[in-house]
Design a protein around this nucleic acid. Structure first.
Lengths: 200, 200
DNA sequence: TGTCAATACGAACGGTCGTGCTATCGTGCG
DNA sequence: CGCACGATAGCACGACCGTTCGTATTGACA
């Protein structure tokens, strides 16, 4: 039996810890030694699961993405087509940021600015995931147009730009600035955005 | 004569280089050795100008803030009170981000997410500067209300939240995602925000 | 039970990190 | 001119970085 390899098991628990840790210290701040200590194994034993640190970072991002899809995207897609689904996407997402929030916040957002001037495979991986994410918003908005919930001349990319922007801003104000109203302000901004998008 | 100390001279040229460098690699990525090489002096010689690395980071942030005030805030304050001044603030700011953009982008934005989970004096310094900055927006908006350009029930903090958010988002899409439309999308969002703020 | 891969470990590598100490340099003052 | 002093350099430190390698431990199958 190939399927029950023990290695895959440890690898995934490594990645789980890596997610927590990198949410605290950033993706660049994630270090082999610290992670090994956290997981409770030796540096070399841990490192054997990856071909390089870069590879490790990429795998962490992929793991984060799959968690994200499970927690945010999939449940939201079960909502009725159109505006409800768009709204669910926004709400669940902002909840996700706040719940991961005790420690670290959203890894994507955290990695975004630390990678924006460091070209390479890790950054490419992140950009890919973020494109998926804004793509998902745009697609949901397109459906909302079909359903007649949104104006049919709505600029989908502009809409996605602004939604993702509100999430970004919420994260910024809540986590860095310690603004307790962040959540409310984000909701207000989102409501205004939706109003702009609805037919006259 | 106390005023013409040579040290102050080198210190400011160190900070200048530090601004460039930290815009590329982030504030945390800024390292004594690399900076020394860049400035063309020894690690210890450079380090003698600061009492710790943390102190260095704080000074870099302060230097960035004063550059920012000179390039963005002061000129904008010369514009007529009210909406023109608010608009000038936004425009100059976004220009500033784009011009620093060849290498690095805005240090404040760059540092924001890497410091959001690392409490301490450096983070406090950053938060202070950012509060100044959103405060400036809110104050300009307050004047716009006085002038009758904005609705008098406008929520100032909400307005500042969203303006700063648009800047943040612009930076994100332009620098990380490489979106060539970022500037245009930011303008559209800002225009909609202003429309919401103008009296019915 | 013996075999063989898969897995984990300890130690070590060259490098760089932040940070001190000591010595040298350059320059304006007495 | 020489001296004092501020600015810079040289060097060393312990710690940690990513990475490699040889070795021990494990667990599945014969």
């Amino acid at each position: 039996m190939r399927s029950l390899a023990k290695g895959d098991d440890t690898r995934s628990s490594i990645l789980e810890q890596a997610l927590e840790l990198s949410a605290e210290v950033g993706l660049e701040g994630l270090t082999v030694g610290t992670l090994a200590k956290r997981v409770g194994m030796s540096k070399s034993g841990l490192y054997a699961h990856f071909e390089s640190k870069e590879d490790m970072q990429r795998q962490v991002l992929d793991a984060a993405a799959s968690y994200f899809v499970d927690a945010v995207v999939s449940p939201a897609l079960k909502q009725p087509r159109g505006l409800p689904r768009v709204r669910a996407l926004f709400e669940r997402w902002i909840d996700w940021i706040s719940s991961n929030e005790r420690r670290g916040g959203c890894l994507f957002i955290g990695s975004a600015t630390e990678l924006d001037d460091r070209p390479g495979p890790v950054r490419d991986t992140l950009v890919g995931h973020l494109r998926d994410v804004t793509g998902t918003i745009a697609r949901a908005a397109a459906i909302a147009i079909e359903e007649g919930h949104f104006r049919d001349d709505l600029d989908l990319d502009q809409f996605a730009f602004e939604v993702w922007g509100i999430l970004l801003t919420h994260h910024h104000f809540e986590r860095l600035m310690g603004n307790r109203d962040a959540r409310k302000r984000a909701s207000v901004a989102f409501a205004a955005l939706v109003r702009r998008a609805t037919p006259a």
